[in-house]
Design a protein around this nucleic acid. Structure first.
Length: 467
RNA sequence: GGGCCUGUGGGCUAGCUUGGUAUACUUGUGGCUUUGGGAGCCAUUGACCCCGGUUCAAAUCCGGGCAGGCCCA
């Protein structure tokens, strides 16, 4: 699906509301209520994230929400990057606080004072932790559910290593974890090393994780940072090595937010509503019994038995036995994006089959009732693969090579030569209104000239309008 | 940071200029009926953002507050 800006904004808000993902009527701008269906989706994503981090030797932790100003201010670039968008707690009861408290916009400054206590020896390393929490950032721009909010649900992993090389290996592991998470949600993405002026405040370098939305803009879903010793020095996180020498740890972080939900809505949705990737769909299958006066009891019992069978087979299934017309139910579940609809009526029972309809491509057919569990599983796998393949194809088609600033396509991701200088980069951004997303994390063959100064370059830069 | 606009049942909306019983659709609830793509009929619940002012009378006019949206830097 491809949409103009206004159409996308209307479509997005409409779908989020009608599918029951979020209620934005809570009386604080940018702080929305997770309604049951939306929260189910987020929980399935979180569950998968937990599984991935646990399996790669990370320990889940949970740090306090508040950070004393004295700790928050220790890393100068970091505070400069965040001080305009943090919430402050200045009072407690009737008293003004001596040391004001920051409501975390991210948790480096909460965690690292403790890391300096936890890490003493090289045997304590690597330290690999993560947490899934809410953070707060005072957004002044237009807010939008999941995409730009002031209370952000996200995960953040924080690691400490003996050397820059070890930390670099962690970045590679993070990318593998990302690959698996993205596959589960059928989301394509690009890995681009951000410009110096756009990297995370305090980072050595930042890898942005972007995806492409139907209005032609890119959405940053998360990022991976290599900090080197930029934080361990001000927070004094040191270890004693084999030779008794004290050294600063090298650190990384990796985080992705509820924007994953915004991305899956935008990337997969269509004019009928959401399309949920089977991997994180709260309901992978919905069963609609087709009742008639004569067959009501028989069909109801068969539908119930079918639901139990699928459920026992490990499939997340919803039996919609509301007293409503089938057509009306179809529309309801299509808006919510349930990947597979099963219809069961007297005709199907007679033929020993169940009818199905795929949400992603509207394909219909039947499955033998004797073979229903493996049949449904296979269909869900196929749906997942095809959703990812289609989304990847769309993303590829949105990337366009350009070699001049004349007539830049406004709804594409531009690939072009950039010498890497701040001067040319800023000139391009200021004059063209595009944001430079960065240069590929994985080198890709390229030869061209800087689009501004004409100097020969051997790697491309990417730019786009961003959400 | 500067400017503009808007708040009416759960949702969407008419009424506001020119003050006088608040409108339609949708949703919710109960019933009858129906069920292979949003059926129909009957009954019914439900609102003027808050505070103050003007007035016989305020959704409507005025002031302030709160909330939301848009545009520009």
């Amino acid at each position: 699906m491809s949409l103009k800006e206004d159409d996308f904004a209307d479509w997005y808000l409409d779908v989020v509301e009608k599918a029951g993902m979020s209620d934005k009527r809570y009386p604080i701008k940018g702080m929305n209520v997770w309604t049951p269906y939306g929260w189910k989706v987020m929980r399935f994503i979180d569950a998968y994230i937990r599984q991935e981090f646990d399996a790669t030797g990370h320990d889940e932790v949970c740090f306090p929400l508040m950070i004393p100003e004295t700790e928050f201010a220790k890393e100068k670039d970091h505070i400069k990057g965040f001080d305009e968008e943090v919430y402050w707690v200045t009072h407690a009861g009737l008293n003004e606080l001596d040391v004001r408290l920051v409501v975390r916009p991210t948790s480096e400054t909460a965690m690292y004072p403790m890391f300096s206590l936890w890490v003493r020896s090289h045997q304590d390393l690597p330290l690999k932790t993560y947490q899934i929490v809410n953070t707060f950032r005072y957004e002044t721009k237009q807010t939008r559910p999941f995409i730009r909010v002031r209370e952000i649900h996200f995960f953040e992993s924080h690691t400490c290593h003996v050397s820059e090389e070890d930390a670099q290996c962690q970045v590679e592991e993070d990318i593998q974890i990302l690959e698996r998470i993205a596959k589960q949600i059928c989301l394509p993405y690009t890995l681009l090393v951000r410009t110096e002026w756009d990297k995370f405040p305090g980072a050595h370098y930042t890898v942005g994780i972007d995806t492409s939305m139907p209005n032609g803009r890119t959405l940053q879903m998360g990022s991976i940072h290599h900090y080197r010793t930029n934080f361990s020095i001000p927070y004094n996180i040191t270890y004693e090595d084999e030779n008794g020498e004290h050294k600063y740890v090298h650190q990384t972080t990796f985080g992705m937010s509820e924007r994953l939900v915004g991305a899956l809505i935008g990337v997969h949705g269509d004019d009928k509503g959401l399309v949920m990737p089977p991997g994180i769909a709260p309901y992978q299958v919905v069963i609609i019994p087709i009742l008639s006066k004569k067959s009501a009891d028989e069909v109801s019992a068969a539908a119930k038995a079918l639901g139990d069978q699928l459920s026992a087979g490990g499939i997340r299934v919803k039996l919609d036995d509301r007293d409503d017309r089938p057509g009306s139910k179809y529309y309801d579940w299509e808006i919510k994006g349930v990947p597979l609809r099963l219809e069961l009526g007297a005709r199907d029972i007679e033929n020993k089959v169940v009818s199905f309809a795929r949400r992603d491509n509207a394909e219909k057919g039947t499955i033998a009732i004797s073979d229903v569990v493996p049949g449904v599983k296979m269909l869900l796998d196929v749906i997942s693969e095809e959703m990812l393949a289609r989304a990847e194809e769309v993303q590829r088609s949105r990337i366009q090579d350009v070699d001049s600033v004349e007539n830049l396509p406004q709804d594409k991701i531009l690939r072009f030569g950039w010498c890497g200088s701040d001067e040319c980069g800023h000139k391009f951004e200021d004059e063209q209104g595009f944001k430079i997303l960065g240069t590929p994390y994985r080198p890709e063959p390229y030869s061209g000239k800087c689009i501004i100064c004409g100097k020969p370059v051997d790697r491309p830069a990417y730019a786009a309008h961003t959400m």
